[in-house]
Design a protein around this nucleic acid. Sequence first.
DNA 1: GCGATCAGGT
DNA 2: CACACCTGATCGC
Length: 604
Amino acid sequence: MSSFPGRMKEYPYISLDRFDHENLHARAYFLSHCHKDHMRGIKAPKLKRRLRSSRRVKLYCSPVTKELLLSSRKHLFWEEFIVPLELESPTQISLVDEASGESEEVVVTLLPAGHCPGSVMFLFEGRHGNVLYTGDFRLALGDAARMEHLHSGSRVKDIRSVYVDSTFFDPRFYQIPSREACVSAILRLAGDWMARGALHVLWLNCKAAYGYEYLFARLGREFNTRVHVNNLQMFRRMPEILSYVTTERQTQIHACRHPKGEKYLRGNRLPCGCRSRDGADLRVLSVKPTTMWFGERMRKTDVLIKSGSDAFRACFSFHSSYCEVKDFLSYLRPARVFANVVPMGCTLAEVTRMLQTTCRKRPRDDPAYKPLGLLKGRRAAPTPPRDGQSDDDDDGLFDGSPPKKKPPQRRRLPDERGGRTPPPPAPEEDSPPQPVAGDADREERTANFLDCTESNDDSEEDGRSEEDEQSEGDESGTKWRRRTGSEPPKWEDFFAAEPLPDSQKSLDGQSPPGRRAPEASGEREDDVDDIDDVDVDDDFSLSLSASASNHSSQNREAAEADEPTPPRLDFDIPCTPDSKRPSPEQLTALYRKLARGDDLSSAD
DNA sequence: GCGATCAGGT
DNA sequence: CACACCTGATCGC
């Protein structure tokens, strides 16, 4: 659960995912996704009052998040204040203090977060540097390298702070099977079961929250059916989701839940009480999406665990694993990282300490510090220099070796901005508020975590793994490039915002487009119908266009599951105004020094 | 009566 | 295991 207080140190006039307390005075609001723990205060009377008395405050979010937010009548009052922003389109926003008229510009870019429909990360670029707020995210290894807007030219942008989803940033949650592995296992299980006959139905025991929709969609497409859910109200503005769900109980796949206080679901019953036409008993296979994680050494990655005669737990995670978070941060190498979440059984100090590991080293004792650019494979002296692209300092967490001193980090230039977006240059040093955890005692007391128990080796009797290990089908080595669609639609369909008809962004800096043309989601509701917050029982008769469904067998293109190193951009020599490209000889000399672990400060 | 907070359950 | 959420109890306005 997010405990992010709502504001970032660099841009305190902005509030993100929080709408209470100090955040009541924000000059602009940002909502990363529609989960309640990121919406605190969003409908409080105090906030409504604030909005009414303001002419400028807006809420920025993705187009999908807008639709989901407005799906609840309680949030309809937001409509006139919402400014949906396309993903991956830098947009300049003016943060205006309405009393004084004082204003500050910031450029924001929404990046896909893979957490639930509409979920995004926010990259802010402005006077106080580049900062990234991730909201909640589930990104695969190497995803950061694929995000164009985290780069400037061929290099990673200089990021001052990352406010990161640290839900699973704890070595206990070392690895979580890839999303694709999990979904395809569920698809197979479902297929095997339902193939036994029409009386064999599947019940997905999902929590009440956005995030399972892509599962529904995959199942719907694969089996040309719809998933039974309790009500459609939460999807009413999302036609492409609506087309995979139904309130009609006569379907083989259910994700319904027990209405109220009824608990008589026992045995093999569906929560909706659905029975077969002739009254014969249904055979219900229950599948409970559950986060399952695996320790460092566990190569076994069963994504399905039998938990009863007709019951399975299926691996399913909304959040990135330790490895995925670490990969993400290690790639970006921000100056500082802040935890948005304190993982279970862990203190804020502990997470922060571990997060610090992924930061680039602050040249505290080296005032003459000169950024050198991206160096690959840089190791500390005691460690033999490794080449290849595993340039991650794996801080001795898992290799059984004694904790090493932190090796000098990759260094980078403070990004010269070559892009089209012109955020003003960041001031060099603005004494960071409190980059937690001093480091005098840099004993990585991570040893505590070395012997953490693995999660799932308790797999039961018939632990036949549906899928053996497999992992994301990421062609490693891909350049960061957005994939453009020609493949069958999948995850991205729901998790990236769909293109809006009006794609113009508010670049004028003074007044964001307060009112928008009809959204892409079709179903423009002009005045809200009578759908109440409770049960809607209409059967939306939507055509189930099951056109694409043939990508089921392309399940795995195995990439090594335990190969945590993402594709890296190549070694790059900085092109600072005051430096020139080193000659090959100079480079060779530099490499020699690096290999010996020599001090580089004397280098020239 | 409403909101905020916490405990307990799924 | 957790997640995200709901319900109900309690306290304060």
